[in-house]
Nucleic acid binder design. Structure first.
Lengths: 225, 225
DNA sequence: CCTAGCTTGTAACGAATGTTACAAAACCAG
DNA sequence: CTGGTTTTGTAACATTCGTTACAAGCTAGG
């Protein structure tokens, strides 16, 4: 049955696993293919995550209610992505958002006990799963670092130092002010203002997309702000 | 050899695993016990994490350099805790901080390949590891949510609504203003000011440690700030 | 009861950012 | 090249928070 979905081979969970091996492990566990119509609720925010879910067909979206009751779309999820993968195990394993189908969709559903069996029986799948959730944690750690800077200049200095790995002196900015503003959750004109101030401080020289780091020590001083 | 460290039974990784089972799985993998003197560098920030490390004896600290070159202690780690557990696997698996021994210490060191074997061979250990790193991810997700509020009133409203699960109307605050300020990374007088403003807005009534939610809808309106 | 230490309340002032708006510059497609 | 769209620069004003400081209230121990 899993044979009907060759896309599953491209899932981050099954990278590097041959089709024979995949068939082998799937033949020894229980799993379901669950179908949904368009605009159907797949899971509610706050519901316990009881299974490992992988999207095989269609597309789904994660959405939240804002305080006024309005629905905000967080992201669209396409095959062969897993859903809420970091919430399958753990002490607070609740869906962080509502999951709704955008169109008719099909999900691979594996109960937790069978997911554990799957991981035990194939080390590559286990390693893939560990890589995915560990990378998630690492990404979140970086995001917290960014959000913990009190000032926009601190965020920008951190961003520049990470982009250059403390090496290059000149580099080309690969994000517009708008994109940086969205990434940092700040107002776009404030990005422009911070650029001007950093320029005025003499630590960088920025013209359009070209950035030159003039005083790296000065740039690092923003990291405590 | 692992018998010499009964404390390992209390590690979050080995909860619910009997001593016989533990001996059994450890007899089929390679591992080392590594000893360190006091004030010795165990790992540098940015170094690749190549092994699973569990502290068996002594204590170690995580520390960072601030931009001025000064050392900041992030946390102390005691047995039987693992080190940098969310950084063992994943695409950015580097130590996030320096790790330094506070006193003579001993670490259980398991190469990644052997760690994978350990997990494959005992489902309870596998589940424990998945629970630990998934919980870590869930904690980080909550922290990002908190840090993403633009205002202190938003943070506090979120905190109150989580403490009460949207149910109780009266409750006792279990954290001092100082503790809340530390938790949110803000100034203590600003917490007091936000309390006063929320009081003045008529959404809560707070006196000492007693909190009454007067207008939950109003309280929710802070969530967008 | 008294004292010391901790917590809270409050205020003034400065710093940083958000918001709104408009103009200029840059970019892209026809 | 031209026109339309996007991006950037800038400014004024409002909002929020940080910092510093001091006083009052609370709590625990002797």
């Amino acid at each position: 049955m899993i044979n009907n979905y060759p896309i599953v081979m491209q899932s981050p969970l099954f990278k590097g696993v041959g089709m024979d091996d995949l068939n082998n492990v799937f033949s020894s566990i229980h799993y379901r293919i669950k179908k949904y119509d368009a605009d159907q609720i797949i899971a509610f925010e706050g519901d316990e995550v009881k299974c490992l879910y992988i999207l095989l067909k269609g597309s789904v979206k994660g959405e939240m209610m804002d305080p006024s009751g309005k629905t905000i779309k967080i992201e669209d999820i396409l095959p062969p992505k897993p859903l809420a993968i970091a919430f399958v195990f753990g002490s607070a394993n609740k869906f962080p958002v509502n999951i709704v189908s955008n169109e008719p969709s099909e999900l691979l559903v594996i109960e937790k006990a069978d997911a554990l069996k799957l991981f035990s029986n194939n080390e590559q799948i286990l390693q893939n799963f560990l890589n995915v959730i560990s990378s998630r944690s690492q990404f979140l750690t970086q995001k917290i670092k960014m959000l913990s800077f009190q000032t926009i200049k601190g965020k920008l200095a951190n961003f520049f130092l990470q982009e250059t790995k403390g090496e290059a002196i000149d580099f080309v900015l690969n994000k517009s002010q708008n994109a940086l503003a969205e990434l940092f959750g700040v107002a776009r004109p404030s990005i422009g203002r911070a650029f001007k101030e950093m320029n005025d401080d003499g630590f960088i020289h920025i013209k359009g997309k070209s950035v030159r780091i003039i005083d790296i020590k000065g740039l690092r001083s923003y990291l405590s702000t």
